[in-house]
Design a protein around this nucleic acid. Sequence first.
DNA 1: AAGGCTGCCAACCGCAGTGAA
DNA 2: ATTCACTGCGGTTGGCAGCCT
Length: 263
Amino acid sequence: MGRAPCCEKDGLKRGAWSPEEDQRLADYIARHGHPNWRALPKHAGLLRCGKSCRLRWVNYLSPDIKRGNFTADEEDLIIRLHQTLGNRWSVIAAQLPGRTDNEIKNVWHSHLKKRLEDGLKPAADHDAGGSGRQKSRKQAKARSATVDARKRQTSPQGQSSSSLTCSTVTESAAAVSSSPSDNATITGASHGHQLVKEDTSSSEAVTDNSFLSSTDVTGMIDLGATDEDLSLAMSSSSNWSDDQDFWIKMLQEGGDIIDLPEL
DNA sequence: AAGGCTGCCAACCGCAGTGAA
DNA sequence: ATTCACTGCGGTTGGCAGCCT
């Protein structure tokens, strides 16, 4: 039977979006919303497939998107959620208002994953294999935050990240997550479980139990989020409770994860 | 100064889930 | 109950920019 392709490939543009296309898409959605992604490009006069339009909107043009580097709190949260949920980026993104799954995925693969891996390695490994190239990788990693900031400031949205609390990628999570054994930490760190924040505006010490409670998601989301952000995040993760229960059950039954790690 | 290497981000691809007909 | 269209998700990749040798 076969699934029809999401769109005819012929005559459709691919690759990077031009400012004009962005403008068209944003204007159209502002006026009409996006009840039907498939029909949208035709109505908006775009030579793109609906899928591409949706992706562009969701990951880049939507006004809900927060620009700028990830804060240390956000990074910590991603690490924690990933340890519990795995690569379920959309669920993780739902807990980080203004962040997209794609962005989180990229950050994970480019920064956080490596940082965790580095943290897990014995120190000798770093030195023994410490070629100049490896050194430069780390330096490049440290640079990346600066590069990101530069790139994002030139984005079509033109939103400055200056109002955000920026963290360089190198600073915090190594301490946060450099336990010698990933899994051991996950299952073993059963005390405390507080997400320590220097910025006490978000204040609530987030316990794992509160995280695991399907009725108390908001306590975890609070990274300076507004009520609108929270409701948005909640609505966008409407399956969260069921979903979460399912995974928690699975993980607990499997004995993989009893509790969230202390970071 | 130039080429190579690396990292990052945006975008694409294919599959799965869901709801309507 | 089945089929089909549509949306959403996660994995992957290409292009670009910066640093290092």
